[in-house]
């Protein structure tokens, strides 16, 4: 068994208590957790989905850009944050399991530790262009 870094454990614990959709990736960019609010947005709880890689994530939820084109996983704010080690922000559309599209703004922050980057956390907000509608 590989122990998760403490900083990821604490991030998950915090996210579990938030009502804002939040996502967590590890240092390799693998999605390792999202909270209940994110599960409501996506239509699937994390416990049902489990840890997922880039391809599965893309096929399930998108996301898509303003033109409706899929955004490559490597270009997502969350992945940018963990790989470049800097904050990233973006506007995108995710698709829930029932097909509903949600326009959201995403802010992602790298989790930097004395031992280097351990992952990143992203929080979703309703996109300003969507007039604040939607469950995000």
């Amino acid at each position: 068994m590989t122990q998760r870094p403490l900083e990821l454990i604490l991030a998950r614990n915090l996210m579990s208590a938030l009502s804002t959709p939040a996502f967590l990736v590890d240092e390799g960019g693998l999605l390792v957790f999202y909270n209940e609010a994110a599960g409501m947005l996506l239509g699937k709880r994390f416990e049902e989905l489990g840890t997922v890689g880039a391809e599965e994530w893309g096929s399930l939820f998108g996301p898509f850009d303003e033109q409706g084109e899929p955004i490559p996983y490597d270009e997502l704010p969350l992945v940018t944050a963990v790989r470049a080690g800097r904050p990233a922000h973006g506007e995108l559309t995710v698709r829930s399991t029932d097909g509903t599209l949600h326009e959201v703004e995403v802010s992602a922050l790298p989790i930097q530790t004395p031992h280097g980057s351990q992952g990143a956390i992203a929080v979703f907000w309703p996109a300003a262009s969507s007039n604040g509608a939607g469950p995000a």
């Binding site: 068994m1 590989t2 122990q3 998760r4 454990i9 604490l10 614990n13 915090l14």
Partner: peptide
Amino acid sequence: ALGADLESLEEDWISGFALAR
């Protein structure tokens, strides 16, 4: 147990688990 349910949490997400296993 800060913000976590030790009875239900996966082992690799429990602080200190690998040290004590």
